[in-house]
Amino acid sequence: MYENENPVFDNVDAYLEERLTPPDETLELTLNRQDEAGLPPMAVSPLQGAFLNILAKSVGARRILELGTFAGYSTIWLARALPEGGKVITLELQDVNADLSQRNFDDAGLADRIEIRRGPAEKSLNILINDGVKPFDFIFLDADKIRYPTYLDQILMLSRPGTLIIADNVIRNGRILDDSGKDPSIRGVRTFLDMLKDHPQLDCTALQTMGCKGYDGFAMMYVR
């Protein structure tokens, strides 16, 4: 995550969080454990977590796929959007992150709604595809930016008409404009966005975000 050089962003986020996202011991504990484990502050902000929660509710999601569990903060927001019997499948490469996330899910009382699949996301996605699982209603992509183009092809095979897909960190503090190709993460996101242009299966847009997480943004895709 990029360093925030504008204190106004932090102050506005704090103002909005105070009014729109009430104190939540479970979510605060998740962030505290993330810090105690020495993990970088890469989780979505509270306002962004609430945004994902509202989006998932608005499409009536019962099956959610997340790429990139990290400490489980966004996963908890998504799982709370589910109705009875709903499920989040979240993919995480690092065992240390998966172990911490499972502890957070257990303490949040959401373990029955969340399944962590460990290992490279590309491999886990291929297993889901080959197993012929039911399509997902909502997909949150927040994993290795280098592989966003590969993930797009795979998650489309796990979608249906009406699936909503959200991809995080697509602005990269404005560095998305860098076409030198030297940064593999920028190269991956640029290729991903190029794939979205005139995509035959998708209606797409993107939103720039400025707040306590710095300057970044989401890409949003609706499967036709």
Rank of each mutant, 00 (worst) to 15 (best):
M1Q: 15
Y2K: 15
E5W: 13
P7N: 08
P7D: 09
V8S: 10
V12H: 07
A14C: 07
E18V: 01
T21Y: 13
T21I: 12
D24A: 04
E25P: 01
E25M: 05
L29T: 13
L31V: 07
N32W: 08
G38N: 07
S45I: 01
S45E: 02
P46W: 06
Q48W: 11
F51V: 09
A61C: 05
E66T: 00
T69V: 05
Y73Q: 04
T75D: 00
I76G: 13
W77I: 04
L82K: 02
P83G: 07
G85Q: 01
I89P: 13
L91Q: 07
L93S: 09
N97E: 11
N97C: 14
N104M: 07
D106F: 02
D107Y: 13
D107W: 12
D107P: 02
L110W: 08
A111I: 03
D112L: 01
R117T: 03
P120N: 08
E122C: 08
K123D: 12
S124V: 02
L125M: 11
N126T: 08
L128C: 02
I129K: 05
I129H: 06
D131M: 00
P135K: 07
P135C: 11
F138A: 01
I139V: 02
R147F: 12
R147W: 10
Y148R: 05
T150I: 10
Q154G: 05
L158H: 06
R160S: 08
I166Q: 11
A167Q: 13
R172K: 15
I176V: 09
L177S: 10
D179G: 02
D183W: 09
R187A: 13
G188M: 01
G188A: 05
V189A: 09
T191F: 05
H199K: 05
P200D: 06
C204D: 04
M210Q: 13
C212Y: 03
F218I: 03
A219Y: 07
M220K: 02
M220C: 05
R224H: 14
